[in-house]
């Protein structure tokens, strides 16, 4: 048996899980409650999010949780008994995460 390259994906999964666990409930609270309820002006939030530090944070908040999703959902399918198509599923899921990361980096940092 050969040692797996899973550590690469597991690290991204863990980092994404950490980012989502710490930031997402509060972020959803802001975008789904505080802005619609008028506690924060949408345009103010847009300006806060345009700050260079926010842009870096946003790239992390988009990229890493998507790797978290890709990794976890790949195993959810196995849990549900879908054992075939392992490689295409992995390419599709991680590919989505990679593609979104490139999009986010282009939109926010370039």
């Amino acid at each position: 048996m050969a040692r797996s390259n899973e550590p690469a994906f597991w690290s991204l999964f863990s980092a994404g899980g950490m980012v989502a666990a710490f930031l997402f409930p509060a972020a959803i609270f802001i975008t789904a409650y505080m802005v619609p309820a008028g506690k924060i002006e949408a345009d103010n939030l847009r300006m806060v999010m345009s700050h260079p530090i926010s842009r870096l944070l946003l790239v992390a908040m988009i990229s890493l949780p998507l790797f978290h999703w890709a990794h976890r959902f790949r195993f959810v399918l196995v849990d549900l008994g879908i054992k075939g198509f392992k490689l295409p599923i992995a390419i599709l899921f991680y590919g989505t995460a990679v593609g979104s990361t490139i999009c986010a980096a282009y939109l926010l940092l370039v």
Binding site: M1, A2, D79
Partner: peptide, 13 residues
Amino acid sequence: DVLFSDEGIWECT
């Protein structure tokens, strides 16, 4: 070589 293989710890969810 066995523990850290795909059939080892990485199968665990």
